[in-house]
Protein backbone atom coordinates (compact mmCIF):
# COMPACT_ATOMS: atom_id res chain seq x y z
CA UNK A 1 0.00 0.00 0.00
CA UNK A 2 2.87 2.34 0.89
CA UNK A 3 4.50 1.79 -2.48
CA UNK A 4 1.23 2.65 -4.28
CA UNK A 5 1.09 6.01 -2.52
CA UNK A 6 4.77 6.62 -3.25
CA UNK A 7 4.09 6.10 -6.98
CA UNK A 8 1.02 8.35 -6.72
CA UNK A 9 3.08 11.08 -5.04
CA UNK A 10 5.82 10.71 -7.64
CA UNK A 11 3.29 10.96 -10.50
CA UNK A 12 1.68 14.03 -8.93
CA UNK A 13 5.05 15.76 -8.55
CA UNK A 14 6.12 14.74 -12.05
CA UNK A 15 2.98 16.32 -13.55
CA UNK A 16 3.42 19.49 -11.49
CA UNK A 17 7.04 19.67 -12.69
CA UNK A 18 5.82 19.39 -16.28
CA UNK A 19 4.08 22.79 -15.87
CA UNK A 20 0.60 21.31 -16.24
CA UNK A 21 -0.52 23.39 -13.26
CA UNK A 22 0.72 26.58 -14.99
CA UNK A 23 -1.33 25.72 -18.08
CA UNK A 24 -4.28 25.33 -15.74
CA UNK A 25 -3.72 28.70 -14.02
CA UNK A 26 -3.71 30.50 -17.39
CA UNK A 27 -6.72 28.50 -18.51
CA UNK A 28 -8.63 29.16 -15.26
CA UNK A 29 -8.10 32.92 -15.54
CA UNK A 30 -9.11 32.92 -19.22
CA UNK A 31 -12.23 30.83 -18.57
CA UNK A 32 -13.27 32.90 -15.55
CA UNK A 33 -12.81 36.15 -17.50
CA UNK A 34 -14.70 34.85 -20.54
CA UNK A 35 -17.38 33.44 -18.30
CA UNK A 36 -17.79 36.81 -16.55
CA UNK A 37 -17.94 38.76 -19.83
CA UNK A 38 -20.48 36.42 -21.40
CA UNK A 39 -22.67 36.42 -18.32
CA UNK A 40 -22.77 40.24 -18.52
CA UNK A 41 -24.45 39.89 -21.92
CA UNK A 42 -27.12 37.52 -20.70
CA UNK A 43 -29.84 40.06 -19.82
CA UNK A 44 -30.75 39.54 -16.19
CA UNK A 45 -29.63 35.92 -16.03
CA UNK A 46 -25.98 36.53 -15.16
CA UNK A 47 -25.75 34.16 -12.24
CA UNK A 48 -27.15 31.13 -14.04
CA UNK A 49 -25.11 31.74 -17.17
CA UNK A 50 -21.98 32.30 -15.05
CA UNK A 51 -22.52 29.02 -13.17
CA UNK A 52 -23.31 27.06 -16.37
CA UNK A 53 -20.28 28.36 -18.22
CA UNK A 54 -18.13 27.93 -15.13
CA UNK A 55 -19.08 24.27 -14.77
CA UNK A 56 -18.47 23.72 -18.48
CA UNK A 57 -15.07 25.37 -18.09
CA UNK A 58 -14.24 23.12 -15.13
CA UNK A 59 -15.05 19.98 -17.12
CA UNK A 60 -13.13 21.26 -20.13
CA UNK A 61 -10.11 22.08 -17.93
CA UNK A 62 -10.24 18.62 -16.35
CA UNK A 63 -10.39 16.85 -19.71
CA UNK A 64 -7.64 19.03 -21.15
CA UNK A 65 -5.39 18.33 -18.16
CA UNK A 66 -5.98 14.61 -18.51
CA UNK A 67 -5.14 14.62 -22.23
CA UNK A 68 -2.04 16.75 -21.62
CA UNK A 69 -0.92 14.53 -18.74
CA UNK A 70 -1.42 11.40 -20.84
CA UNK A 71 0.60 12.86 -23.71
CA UNK A 72 3.40 14.11 -21.46
CA UNK A 73 3.75 10.90 -19.44
CA UNK A 74 3.54 8.68 -22.54
CA UNK A 75 6.54 10.48 -24.02
CA UNK A 76 8.61 10.27 -20.82
CA UNK A 77 7.56 6.78 -19.70
CA UNK A 78 7.36 4.86 -22.95
CA UNK A 79 9.20 6.86 -25.64
CA UNK A 80 12.08 7.96 -23.39
CA UNK A 81 11.83 4.63 -21.48
CA UNK A 82 11.68 6.15 -17.98
CA UNK A 83 9.29 3.32 -17.07
CA UNK A 84 12.30 0.94 -16.91
CA UNK A 85 13.29 2.61 -13.63
CA UNK A 86 9.87 1.88 -12.19
CA UNK A 87 9.34 -1.71 -13.31
CA UNK A 88 12.64 -2.94 -11.89
CA UNK A 89 11.54 -1.85 -8.41
CA UNK A 90 10.07 -4.50 -6.08
CA UNK A 91 6.43 -3.76 -6.81
CA UNK A 92 3.84 -5.44 -9.05
CA UNK A 93 2.69 -3.85 -12.28
CA UNK A 94 -0.80 -3.59 -10.82
CA UNK A 95 0.51 -1.57 -7.87
CA UNK A 96 2.44 0.66 -10.25
CA UNK A 97 -0.64 1.26 -12.43
CA UNK A 98 -2.83 1.95 -9.40
CA UNK A 99 -0.27 4.44 -8.08
CA UNK A 100 -0.20 6.26 -11.40
CA UNK A 101 -4.00 6.35 -11.53
CA UNK A 102 -4.09 7.90 -8.04
CA UNK A 103 -1.48 10.47 -9.05
CA UNK A 104 -3.43 11.39 -12.18
CA UNK A 105 -6.67 11.66 -10.19
CA UNK A 106 -4.81 13.83 -7.66
CA UNK A 107 -3.71 16.40 -10.25
CA UNK A 108 -7.09 16.34 -11.95
CA UNK A 109 -9.00 16.83 -8.71
CA UNK A 110 -6.67 19.69 -7.75
CA UNK A 111 -7.61 21.45 -10.98
CA UNK A 112 -11.34 20.68 -10.83
CA UNK A 113 -11.62 21.70 -7.16
CA UNK A 114 -9.39 24.75 -7.69
CA UNK A 115 -11.57 26.00 -10.53
CA UNK A 116 -14.81 25.26 -8.72
CA UNK A 117 -13.63 27.25 -5.70
CA UNK A 118 -12.55 30.06 -8.04
CA UNK A 119 -16.02 30.20 -9.64
CA UNK A 120 -17.71 30.04 -6.22
CA UNK A 121 -15.31 32.73 -4.95
CA UNK A 122 -16.14 35.10 -7.81
CA UNK A 123 -19.86 34.58 -7.17
CA UNK A 124 -19.35 35.19 -3.45
CA UNK A 125 -17.34 38.35 -4.23
CA UNK A 126 -20.29 39.74 -6.20
CA UNK A 127 -22.71 38.88 -3.40
CA UNK A 128 -24.33 35.89 -5.11
CA UNK A 129 -24.65 32.59 -3.31
CA UNK A 130 -23.85 29.17 -4.73
CA UNK A 131 -26.61 26.60 -4.32
CA UNK A 132 -26.18 22.96 -3.37
CA UNK A 133 -26.72 21.85 -6.99
CA UNK A 134 -23.50 23.57 -7.99
CA UNK A 135 -21.53 21.46 -5.54
CA UNK A 136 -23.40 18.33 -6.60
CA UNK A 137 -22.43 19.08 -10.20
CA UNK A 138 -18.81 19.51 -9.06
CA UNK A 139 -18.90 16.13 -7.26
CA UNK A 140 -20.31 14.64 -10.48
CA UNK A 141 -17.33 16.08 -12.38
CA UNK A 142 -14.89 14.71 -9.79
CA UNK A 143 -16.36 11.22 -10.19
CA UNK A 144 -16.33 11.56 -13.97
CA UNK A 145 -12.63 12.39 -13.74
CA UNK A 146 -11.98 9.12 -11.85
CA UNK A 147 -13.43 7.07 -14.73
CA UNK A 148 -11.72 9.16 -17.41
CA UNK A 149 -8.33 8.91 -15.67
CA UNK A 150 -8.59 5.14 -15.30
CA UNK A 151 -9.73 4.76 -18.93
CA UNK A 152 -6.99 7.12 -20.13
CA UNK A 153 -4.26 5.21 -18.31
CA UNK A 154 -5.70 1.91 -19.55
CA UNK A 155 -5.38 3.22 -23.08
CA UNK A 156 -1.84 4.27 -22.24
CA UNK A 157 -1.06 0.66 -21.34
CA UNK A 158 -2.71 -0.64 -24.53
CA UNK A 159 -1.71 2.10 -26.98
CA UNK A 160 1.49 2.09 -29.00
CA UNK A 161 1.72 5.83 -29.71
CA UNK A 162 1.09 9.06 -27.88
CA UNK A 163 -1.38 10.31 -30.52
CA UNK A 164 -3.29 7.03 -30.33
CA UNK A 165 -3.67 7.23 -26.54
CA UNK A 166 -4.93 10.83 -26.69
CA UNK A 167 -7.35 10.07 -29.53
CA UNK A 168 -8.75 6.90 -27.89
CA UNK A 169 -9.40 8.86 -24.69
CA UNK A 170 -10.95 11.77 -26.55
CA UNK A 171 -13.29 9.49 -28.51
CA UNK A 172 -14.28 7.69 -25.32
CA UNK A 173 -15.25 11.04 -23.79
CA UNK A 174 -17.29 11.99 -26.86
CA UNK A 175 -19.02 8.59 -27.13
CA UNK A 176 -19.56 8.54 -23.36
CA UNK A 177 -21.77 11.61 -23.69
CA UNK A 178 -23.58 10.14 -26.67
CA UNK A 179 -24.70 7.02 -24.79
CA UNK A 180 -27.89 8.70 -23.52
CA UNK A 181 -29.03 9.03 -27.13
CA UNK A 182 -27.97 5.46 -27.84
CA UNK A 183 -30.47 4.26 -25.24
CA UNK A 184 -33.17 6.28 -27.00
CA UNK A 185 -32.16 4.71 -30.32
CA UNK A 186 -32.40 1.22 -28.79
CA UNK A 187 -36.11 1.77 -28.15
CA UNK A 188 -36.72 2.50 -31.83
CA UNK A 189 -37.62 -0.02 -34.54
CA UNK A 190 -34.19 -1.05 -35.75
CA UNK A 191 -32.84 -4.46 -36.75
CA UNK A 192 -31.89 -6.83 -33.94
CA UNK A 193 -28.33 -7.03 -35.26
CA UNK A 194 -28.01 -3.25 -34.91
CA UNK A 195 -29.52 -3.48 -31.44
CA UNK A 196 -26.86 -6.02 -30.41
CA UNK A 197 -24.09 -3.77 -31.75
CA UNK A 198 -25.55 -0.70 -30.03
CA UNK A 199 -25.98 -2.64 -26.79
CA UNK A 200 -22.31 -3.67 -26.91
CA UNK A 201 -21.36 -0.01 -27.33
CA UNK A 202 -23.73 0.95 -24.53
CA UNK A 203 -22.12 -1.39 -22.02
CA UNK A 204 -18.50 -1.03 -23.16
CA UNK A 205 -18.26 2.76 -23.08
CA UNK A 206 -18.69 4.70 -19.83
CA UNK A 207 -22.03 6.50 -19.59
CA UNK A 208 -20.72 9.96 -18.81
CA UNK A 209 -24.21 11.46 -18.80
CA UNK A 210 -24.66 9.93 -15.33
CA UNK A 211 -22.13 12.46 -14.05
CA UNK A 212 -23.42 15.30 -16.23
CA UNK A 213 -25.40 16.87 -13.39
CA UNK A 214 -24.65 20.35 -14.75
CA UNK A 215 -27.05 19.72 -17.65
CA UNK A 216 -29.80 18.48 -15.34
CA UNK A 217 -29.45 21.10 -12.62
CA UNK A 218 -32.66 22.89 -13.58
CA UNK A 219 -34.93 19.86 -13.82
CA UNK A 220 -38.02 20.68 -11.74
CA UNK A 221 -38.11 17.25 -10.04
CA UNK A 222 -34.39 16.73 -9.82
CA UNK A 223 -33.55 14.41 -6.91
CA UNK A 224 -30.07 13.59 -5.70
CA UNK A 225 -30.24 11.79 -2.42
CA UNK A 226 -28.06 9.14 -0.82
CA UNK A 227 -29.71 6.43 -2.94
CA UNK A 228 -28.69 8.11 -6.20
CA UNK A 229 -25.21 8.85 -4.95
CA UNK A 230 -24.80 5.19 -3.96
CA UNK A 231 -25.71 4.13 -7.49
CA UNK A 232 -23.45 6.75 -9.05
CA UNK A 233 -20.55 5.70 -6.80
CA UNK A 234 -21.21 2.05 -7.55
CA UNK A 235 -21.14 2.73 -11.28
CA UNK A 236 -17.96 4.81 -10.96
CA UNK A 237 -16.05 2.19 -9.02
CA UNK A 238 -17.42 -0.78 -10.99
CA UNK A 239 -16.45 0.72 -14.31
CA UNK A 240 -13.12 2.01 -13.02
CA UNK A 241 -12.32 -1.39 -11.55
CA UNK A 242 -12.97 -3.21 -14.83
CA UNK A 243 -11.04 -0.62 -16.81
CA UNK A 244 -8.20 -0.94 -14.30
CA UNK A 245 -8.19 -4.75 -14.68
CA UNK A 246 -7.99 -4.41 -18.48
CA UNK A 247 -5.14 -1.93 -18.11
CA UNK A 248 -3.36 -4.18 -15.62
CA UNK A 249 -3.62 -7.23 -17.90
CA UNK A 250 -2.40 -5.15 -20.87
CA UNK A 251 0.52 -3.84 -18.79
CA UNK A 252 1.44 -7.39 -17.67
CA UNK A 253 1.43 -8.56 -21.27
CA UNK A 254 3.32 -5.56 -22.60
CA UNK A 255 6.83 -6.34 -23.73
CA UNK A 256 9.60 -3.89 -22.92
CA UNK A 257 12.58 -4.18 -25.22
Amino acid sequence: MKSIFKIAKFTYRELIRNHIAIVWVIFAIAIAALDYLLSMLSYGYQKQVFIDLGLGGIEFAGVLTLLLSLAVTYVTEFDQRAIYLQIVKPLTKGEYLLGRILGFIGINWTIVLGMSFLIAGILWFYGASVNIMYWEAVIGLLLEMIILNVVGLTFQMIGTSMAGVVLYTLFTIILGHLLANLKWLLHKHISSFMKIILNIFYYIFPNLEIFNIKDRMYLPHHVLSLVQWESILLYTFTYSFFAFLVGWIAFEKREFK
Partner: peptide, 20 residues
Protein backbone atom coordinates in the same frame (compact mmCIF):
# COMPACT_ATOMS: atom_id res chain seq x y z
CA UNK B 1 -24.58 19.44 -27.91
CA UNK B 2 -24.95 15.67 -27.50
CA UNK B 3 -21.33 14.78 -28.17
CA UNK B 4 -19.84 17.37 -25.87
CA UNK B 5 -22.29 17.08 -22.96
CA UNK B 6 -22.54 20.88 -22.97
CA UNK B 7 -26.24 21.18 -23.79
CA UNK B 8 -26.96 23.82 -21.11
CA UNK B 9 -23.97 25.90 -22.15
CA UNK B 10 -25.06 25.84 -25.78
CA UNK B 11 -28.52 26.98 -24.66
CA UNK B 12 -26.84 29.83 -22.75
CA UNK B 13 -24.86 30.87 -25.84
CA UNK B 14 -28.06 30.87 -27.90
CA UNK B 15 -29.75 32.89 -25.20
CA UNK B 16 -27.03 35.54 -25.34
CA UNK B 17 -27.32 35.55 -29.14
CA UNK B 18 -31.12 35.93 -28.94
CA UNK B 19 -30.80 38.86 -26.51
CA UNK B 20 -28.29 40.46 -28.89
Amino acid sequence: ADLSGFRTIMADFFWIETVE
